[in-house]
Design a binder for these strands. Sequence first.
DNA 1: CGACGTCTTCTTCCCGCTCA
DNA 2: TGAGCGGGAAGAAGACGTCG
Length: 323
Amino acid sequence: MAIKTSDLNAKLFGKANKRRATTPQEAQTAAKEQAQVIELSVAGEDMVSFELVRIPANEVATKTVVFADNAREQSFLNEHALSDVLTTLRERGQQYPAVGRKGKDGKIEVLDGSRRRMSCILAEKEFLIYVAEDINSEHAKFLSDVANAHKPLSLYEKGKEMQAKLESGEAEDQKALAKIFQCSEALVSGALKAASLPLELLQAYPNVGDLGRPTIVKLHKQYSELSSEHQVKLLEMCASNEGFVWQRSQAQGVARLTKEVSETIENWILELSPPKKAINNKVDLVKGRASYTRKGANLALNLKKVDDETMQDILNFIEKKLG
DNA sequence: CGACGTCTTCTTCCCGCTCA
DNA sequence: TGAGCGGGAAGAAGACGTCG
């Protein structure tokens, strides 16, 4: 994702101080060459100076934390979700420093670069980050959001953001959300469903970002049809002993893993609640030609091999009867 | 009974995988 | 290495349900 990262840096450093850089290109170069100090205006406002800090691999986890308001769900960040960053990180080290601020407790809060942070932890590499002394929370959220623009959030993460906007009243309804997020109403519906699913269930998958709307909708339907006791049982199966579900599979490749996890979960659900749909009230009236199903006050007819004349007779009868 | 909001389904397009 | 295939993503539009 090198291109997108450079886009981000162009945005971030676009308004850098002339002392260091006057154009996005220069600022990018500065970031690439890892200048010790960079001054830039955050959100087009105050000038803030960032100092480059190098954190040894074994201290990344303890000395830095991810900004709490970051939309990215940290528990989804595993070797599969980070495979794009990990390959280049292992080969050539960290290309672009992350951006963060000094927290009250002395820890560094990572605003932009939570994926790079986790990658460094996984790959045991040195973590580079530009740190500023004082950035208010509003600006911090801005930086964090801009940063997230280049690696799309998963449906779950989008759904959580949408949920928040609904609750805060920022968005009136799903239609408004679709406008704000520039997506279809169908996607909003799917994202909200994803967000309503328990984390334990989603963590069964190798890369939650890979789960599309159809998969989520299916999963949501299957899960929500379970009784609450069964839901709890299913989550226990997901969380039990041998790590996440995907870690128990032998399959190669994320796509295959994802498929296997889906199948596993589907099977578990079937085990928990046997297909009571077997009570199919379909009745064969004339073998192979006519059947009907009764549901409440409704009647569905299913006729095969019907010629025009017969059809007309039947339609006439219905019209006369119900009309 | 109508109007509004949400969900599902249909269709098209794109991507990645497999096999020759 | 290229062609064919299957599966998934996304949007549009119609179906459905709910509320006043």
